[in-house]
Write a protein that binds this DNA or RNA. Structure first.
Length: 127
DNA sequence: AGCTTGACCGACC
DNA sequence: TGGTCGGCCAAGC
């Protein structure tokens, strides 16, 4: 007898997580969104929640299209994300751009995503 | 029940 | 330009 309770349901992600993942998959190549933007777009939760969801289920979506507001790549996955960016043609700054760090020991000379150009507001492509 | 931690953000110095 | 502080929301202990 069971009562149709779906409480035992598993593999069912929380609504919020599903929304985040869905939106992440909607992000077109060459474009990126910040955690805060995703949360704001969804109209609920906060940047941290988005980050949590990505950390847990991000493996199933193009996580590299969701970055921090600083445009810095994910710690520990910089190279991986960078490969995708270069492949998708995501606007980067730091290398190939102007004003490279010239010998600056900045952590690593890893470039950052140019949010100015790559930021996607969730609207259809537009020039 | 409360406290701590996070794939964060914005403001301030 | 980079480091620090407080705020936000949810999950874990």
């Amino acid at each position: 007898m069971p009562q149709v309770t779906d409480s035992g349901n598993d593999r069912a992600l929380p609504p919020f997580a599903e929304l985040v993942l869905d939106l992440t998959e909607l992000i077109p190549p060459g474009r990126v969104m910040t955690y805060g933007d995703v949360a704001e777009y969804l109209g609920q939760g906060g940047p941290r929640q988005v980050g949590r969801v990505m950390a847990l289920y991000g493996a199933a979506v193009p996580w590299w299209r969701v970055i921090r507001a600083d445009g810095a790549l994910l710690p520990g996955h910089e190279q991986r994300a960078l490969g995708h960016y270069r492949e998708e043609g995501t606007p980067l700054r730091g290398t190939g751009g102007r004003g490279p760090a010239r010998g600056s020991k900045a952590a690593e000379d890893l470039p950052r995503v140019d949010l100015k150009l790559a930021r996607w507001d969730g609207l259809p492509a537009h020039p």
